[in-house]
């Protein structure tokens, strides 16, 4: 999923200062799962914002809406009936959702309520960790299903570096050394020989190196 975290209240209150009526839009997908911008968080933020405004003697009307998927135009269209009553939109979706609202409603200011953080997985209740950087050319088949690009601090394709200690990364003892994980897994799979192969320098064109990316599926395009 795409993970996110709510921005500090001070920043949110500051950007909403000029407004009296806003739409607060959540998303039912990733940000719901990582408890950053689903219906529940929309309710909490709405209440907190209204209280914050009241303590300063002001009033903020908040219309709460949580869309099925904020990164799809079909669902964003549902805002049409509400958008006119709002002076601005605050989105609790990831950056994709925020931009979709900005694209659809050209004359409406839209503000992000969360910082979109990474593509990750849930390690346990309340803990999410980075797993993928969307490099566009997956190497997981070579590395035992553990990504050295997303999970090694130096994104070494031929690790581990000299800073791996007791399975932990030198950058932070809370970070697992990706190459220790890869090695353990290759051993468990009896694929130790794979380690001997030097992985060549990566072609970053499939990643951000090639500029903003697009996927076009001719069989689906209308």
């Amino acid at each position: 999923m795409i993970t996110a975290e709510r921005k500090p209240m001070e920043e949110l209150i500051e950007c909403l200062k000029p407004y009296h009526r806003i739409l607060l839009v959540g998303c039912n997908e990733c940000v719901t799962v990582c408890a950053a911008g689903g219906r529940k968080e929309v309710g909490i933020l709405s209440s907190a914002l209204q209280m914050a405004f009241k303590t300063e003697g002001k009033n903020l009307e908040v219309k709460e809406i949580t869309l099925e998927r904020q990164c799809d135009p079909e669902y964003v269209e549902e805002l049409v009936t509400h958008i006119d009553q709002a002076e601005a939109v605050m989105s609790m979706a990831c950056g994709c959702g925020v931009q979709e609202i900005a694209r659809r409603f050209k004359d409406k200011p839209v503000y992000p309520a969360v910082n979109t953080t990474f593509m990750g997985a849930s390690e346990r209740q309340g803990v999410w960790a980075e797993r993928c950087q969307g490099c566009g050319e997956c190497v997981l088949g070579l590395t035992g299903g553990i990504c050295p690009i997303a999970r090694c601090s130096k994104q070494l394709l031929n690790g581990p570096c000299g800073g791996s200690t007791n399975g932990k990364c030198e950058v932070d003892p809370d970070i697992d050394c990706a190459w220790q994980l890869i090695w353990d897994r290759l051993k468990a799979l009896g694929l130790e020989d794979r380690y001997e192969e030097n992985i060549p320098a990566k072609d970053w064109r499939t990643g951000r190196g090639g500029g903003p990316r697009k996927i076009i599926r001719e069989d689906l395009v209308k």
Binding site: M9, I13, I44, A52
Partner: peptide, 8 residues
Amino acid sequence: KLLDEINI
């Protein structure tokens, strides 16, 4: 923590 953030 949230209430501290909004000065309540």
